[in-house]
Design a binder for these strands. Structure first.
Lengths: 356, 356
DNA sequence: TGAAGAGTTGTTAGCGCTCACAGTGTGCTT
DNA sequence: AAGCACACTGTGAGCGCTAACAACTCTTCA
């Protein structure tokens, strides 16, 4: 007596119905039930209906464990996210998850505030043990992706990156062009001394933004100067804003909005008004950006699209399709009030290369 | 060809080693291997060592699918998170995940931007199918928890809430006291007309903050006025800041920092300086709070602690321990520059109840 | 009319693991 | 010297499912 689910006076055992229970009720073999459940052909429609009714009646749901055991598939993805609760990555994670839910895939998440190789490897191993069919990495730190890529997995890997990475699928926004468009606008406004407040050195996005800034300046024969390398936080923006030498500068392109906010605050503390004395431009367009003082000019990224693109790329890789193009979205410049015309040339002492 | 490293000439079958492979190599039965793997007693230490060596040599990892199939345990948790990428919930989710990883549990996440009952039920059902052993709900919307609670699950459920919910475990910060302390400080500063910019009506946290504000005013015989019910976003704060009748008011307690930022911006647009004409106090202490203009006085919540508390509460519930006390952390008032002494009484026309 | 063929259904054997229980050997007691 | 408890180890069954194949029931057309 193994299948006796009753036996209890009242105390109903809520044991899940199995494929055999359904088979018995529908008067077919368990295999036929399996066929119906998996939507395979060659089942008479009258039989199918009978089985479906039994399924409904017994509230049968297939056991993923049993299924995974025999098929070696899990319909499950592992997601590695490093970094703190910054707006951008958080949003991407959120929409990646939402997209997976829509596609009826489950996702395991491993969050870690740091990104040391050991933790990442441990997380990947845990995922592997869970039979995930693909891994996604949403990380600011470039190293994270390399660690995972270096593990030579046999399952697909997708990373959030601004540039193509040797041999692995990356999805993201075109940080480079976004940065160039920001700097271009500054130049149009008459600025010549345009500094950069960079993001962390191990972030590809940060490097791409810096490269865009540098190239746009170079294309206009303007000289480039980095006033600091921050860590994305407002407090790092504040730190460099407070301590940097600002001579010859009329504009600063910060690598994200949060640092811009800290930077502007520090500028104000030094008696510099934005944008009168100094224009500031950020990156991301966080929800607060429009409401700080002054409202921030920034480059908007579509995090929802990036998250969803990552998922669909990963899913098509899992389906064996390695040819699909990798999506790259184009960030858009949002002009608000932290930027304005360059102040009178008097202030632009270092703009020796003004020759446009 | 991108990640295809396989295809090696020798055609090694990379089939995962099973418990039987280990048993054969170690010269014991599979059951003994199982004992070693599960750290059960009654295994001679020399045997144990031999088995461990075999495990290492074969790179054996137990199959969770097989294990789950027989034990009906999965060492897995389902996490439901609703709402957008706001700082608070995102942080809680992040630290909950991190804590789970530390405890060697896996977590499935279902993110949804809305919180309609159908989606939530669907997510819970998916979790159940995956044999999760517990469910956590991190949601601004009160309804979300009720939906899950209403499903009468047999597995433990933990929710992020400010108040005890009928019969289910909730973890959170004491929003009520946090709010009271904020309002108390405002009163100490001489304010009498202290309005509230509320959070969404379906948020328990929002209601608790409002209740704290109201009670503290009542305790001081001050009258209460809500200038709007926002949705946590800066833009809703801005909307109410722009349109509200502010007569008789010298301070506003906003239900979160983001709305405070929008609110202050609107105030400035109306020619009101903060804190000279109006003090504003927020809630959460988001990273930007210290760097906006003026730096925001706010009530700090320890999201890391909340996330970790949620996990440990859930885990102890899963272990059958229903008696553990539910952690409640106490938010701390952080006083910065968006609050100041009440302006001259001349402006306080509606403060008829000024009698202390 | 019957045999090939297509459509439909059932049977069996695992997937990799744990559980329950049945053994085996060792030391200690009487 | 027999008995017994205890530590250790092995055997068999079965978790719920799918894959492979066997078997059965109709058509259909020579």
């Amino acid at each position: 007596m193994s299948l006796d689910r009753v036996e209890h006076v009242t105390e109903e055992t809520p044991r899940q119905a199995t494929i055999f229970d359904v088979a018995r009720l529908a008067g077919v073999s368990h295999q036929t039930v399996s066929r119906v459940v998996n939507d395979l052909p060659n089942v008479r429609s009258s039989t199918r209906v009978r089985v479906e009714e039994a399924i409904k009646k017994l509230r049968y749901v297939p056991s993923p464990a049993a299924r995974a055991l025999v098929t070696r598939r899990s319909r499950t993805i592992g997601l590695i996210a490093t970094g703190g609760p910054e707006f951008g990555p958080s949003s991407t994670v959120l929409y990646f998850n939402a997209a997976a839910r829509d596609a009826r895939w489950s996702v395991f998440t491993a969050n870690m505030t740091d990104s040391d190789p050991g933790s990442i490897r441990g997380a990947v191993e845990a995922f592997l043990r869970q039979n995930v069919e693909g891994i996604a990495v949403i990380s600011g730190h470039e190293g994270s992706v390399d660690v995972v890529a270096g593990m030579e997995l046999t399952i697909p890997l997708v990373a959030l990156e601004a540039t193509a990475h040797a041999g692995l699928a990356t999805v993201g926004a075109d940080q480079y062009s976004g940065a160039r468009s920001a700097v271009k606008r500054l130049i149009e406004l008459g600025h010549r001394g345009i500094a950069h407040l960079a993001g962390p050195a191990d972030s590809v996005d940060a490097r791409e933004r810096e490269r865009g800034w540098r190239d746009e300046l170079g294309a206009n024969d303007l000289s480039a100067r980095v006033i600091g390398v921050g860590d994305w936080t407002p407090s790092s923006g504040h730190r460099f804003g407070a301590s940097s030498d600002l001579s010859g500068l009329t504009a600063i392109f910060a690598s994200n909005d949060q640092m811009s906010i800290g930077l502007i605050h520090a500028l104000n503390e030094r008696g510099l008004a934005v944008p009168r004395d100094m224009s500031v431009i950020g990156f991301d367009d966080i929800p607060e950006a429009a409401y700080v003082t002054p409202p921030l000019t920034t480059v908007r990224q579509d995090f929802e699209r990036i998250g969803r693109d990552m998922l669909s790329t990963l899913l098509s890789r899992i389906d064996g399709d390695r040819t699909t193009e990798l999506p790259q979205s184009l960030p858009a410049l949002i002009e608000r009030e932290s930027t304005g015309p360059a102040p009178g040339r008097s202030a632009v002492s270092a703009a020796g290369s003004t020759r446009d």
